[in-house]
Amino acid sequence: MTLSVALGPDTRESTQTGTVTSGDVLTAPDIPWNLVIWNDPVNLMSYVSFVFRSYFGYSEAKANKLMMEVHKKGRSIVAHGSKEQVEQHAVAMHGYGLWATVEKATGGSAGGSGKGKGKRG
């Protein structure tokens, strides 16, 4: 991802404290698929975070955390669900121009982090 050099960093103080986490409230034990977002050098960090907020309804804090994970680790699991659910998310992400894939979850409830760190697709 890239940080635009033309505009300075957004200096607005955030008053949000991160209470909205509705998008990923799947609790069933059998939810074996992940939605993965991959890093690329084009998509703006602000845009990726905005997409996570507006599409998944994630809080600003959560969206930024996932965005930074994509940026630093090369990828991040941003949602879980049934195969159909994550495939639907993937198409939506492709619509936004984000590089998304789906994969079978391996081993338990990895809460949106960890695997494949540092890998660049």
Binding site: A6, L7, D10, L44, S46, Y47, F50
Partner: peptide, 22 residues
């Protein structure tokens, strides 16, 4: 670079509108 600048400014405005609606 022009389209990057334009998109960045648009996304900042969209973030502000998202904040305003919450």
């Amino acid at each position: 670079n022009f389209t990057t600048w334009l998109q960045e400014s648009l996304v900042q405005a969209m973030v502000h509108s998202l904040d305003a609606r919450r």
